[in-house]
């Protein structure tokens, strides 16, 4: 990253831009992005979607977590130019109109944040956690990797450990994710769960996951 100052001349060339398309929260954007720009900076600076936060810019805190093609990713580690055509969901896209996703509602109910700066990342991450568990993906603490993982506290703690909360809201974050997970499991039959698992998206609850919403648009 650090340029070698002795040998390299300072460039007089203008920055290189590339045209890409991003689908963000169901809306298509045609953009000429600086090829050095991260998805995080494009979302925040070009699209004005400042819900996604920058805590470290180095993939070390999770504040910038977004869903890219339904999977969670650190926006600060993703070069925008490499994501032409990507389908992205940010915190601004988690609610269904005015109706909060079950995770968002549970975060409020359980007071799962204080300053709120890590919260968008926590919510996107948790949205993906519900989806990953629904697909049957084990984690390092899953006792039986062949069985359907149950999102109990150790599972949630493990799966949510990529998102730092310096305010220390973890106890409440785990409670909130658990509550949303329980509601989701209760509201979904096994066959539906598998079917949903094939789709790429987080699941805020039956019929409310971004994928279903995108399909409806």
């Amino acid at each position: 990253m650090e340029p070698d100052m002795e040998s390299e001349n300072v460039s007089g060339e203008p920055p290189v831009r590339a045209e890409i398309t991003l689908i963000v929260n169901g809306r298509e954007h045609r953009l000429a992005v600086d090829t050095r720009a991260s998805l995080l900076d494009v979302l925040r600076e070009e699209l004005g979607l400042t819900g996604t936060k920058k805590g470290c810019d180095h993939g070390q805190c999770g504040a910038c977590t977004i869903l890219v093609g339904g999977r969670r990713a650190n926006g600060c580690l993703a070069l925008a130019v490499a994501h032409d055509g990507a389908d992205i969901v940010t915190v601004e896209g988690l609610a269904h109109g005015d109706e909060l996703s079950p995770l968002q509602a549970a975060f409020i109910e359980r007071d799962a944040f204080q300053c709120g700066y890590c919260t968008p990342g926590q919510l996107c991450s948790a949205t993906a956690v519900l989806d990953e568990a629904a697909r049957g993906w084990p984690s390092v603490v899953t006792p039986d990797v062949a069985a359907e993982p149950e999102l109990d506290e150790p599972e949630i703690r493990e799966r949510m450990s990529g998102n730092i909360c310096r305010c220390g809201a973890y106890v409440n974050i785990v409670a909130a994710v658990r509550q949303a997970a329980a509601r989701e499991t209760a509201g979904r039959r096994p066959t539906e769960r598998q079917a949903a698992g094939r789709e790429a998206a987080g699941h805020g609850g039956a019929g409310q996951g971004p994928t279903e919403r995108e399909a409806a648009r």
Binding site: L49, G51, E92, F107, I108, D111, G116
Partner: peptide
């Protein structure tokens, strides 16, 4: 301000 913090509006 809870709602603003979970929707990214804050």
């Amino acid at each position: 301000e809870a709602r603003d913090k979970v929707t990214g509006a804050a």
